[in-house]
Write a protein that binds this DNA or RNA. Structure first.
Lengths: 99, 99
DNA sequence: AATATATATCGGTTTTTCCCGATATACCAA
DNA sequence: TTGGTATATCGGGAAAAACCGATATATATT
């Protein structure tokens, strides 16, 4: 995904907030069956904290996924999202050396 | 300026292009009276390379300035813009460690 | 003062983004 | 199969961004 698309994905307060929450899931979300670091957080949990509708949050997560900033894992009827830390490192490096 | 405003400023292909040109002014702009690294490039030169209108380019530069990514120097009837490299370093660090 | 040039700002149209409700799809359980 | 829950997708209204042309402002020159 292009840097332009990444910056667009980051140009929204709610999406930045989601990324912040997902940085330390155990601090921001209640305990769950599956490991935070392995699968991430399901859409419903994120939606509750956002206060936006389910459809909007689902779209935001899909957008962050397309930008490469998140990874998704489908487990049963839930989709778990977690950060793709490699993408953040790569982006930081890009900003420092290329942008 | 907030990171959100910075990411918004970076969410445009033309503005990214301008930042790229300003990274190595001597490679992308004709010689000029004043030192590239000291004052930067004037609006007209940037506008010519963009192909957009003067008003649009002026607004883009003002936007990048407000975001803290550029610095401006008024000299006579010209305004010279150059990159604020500290802002890029700070942003890269932010992406790596905080975002 | 009058003119010319460079840049900034203003008003408006088109495009994109934001965010919603409704609906579709996927999966699970009875 | 039927019904229930989780997520994704679709269609659309409202807000913001992307540009533009016209005009205002600032500076320099004559």
């Amino acid at each position: 995904m292009s840097e332009l698309e990444i910056f667009k994905a980051l140009s929204n307060q709610t999406r930045l907030q989601i990324l912040y929450w997902l940085k330390e899931p155990d601090k921001h979300f209640p305990p769950q069956e599956h490991s935070f670091t392995e699968v991430g957080i399901c859409v419903g949990q994120i939606q509750q904290k956002c206060g936006l509708t389910q459809s909007t949050v689902s779209e935001y997560l899909a957008l962050l996924l397309r930008a490469g900033l998140l990874q998704a894992t489908r487990m049963g009827q839930w989709t778990y999202y977690k950060r793709n830390e490699e993408a953040f490192e790569a982006l930081g490096h890009f900003v420092q050396s290329t942008l």
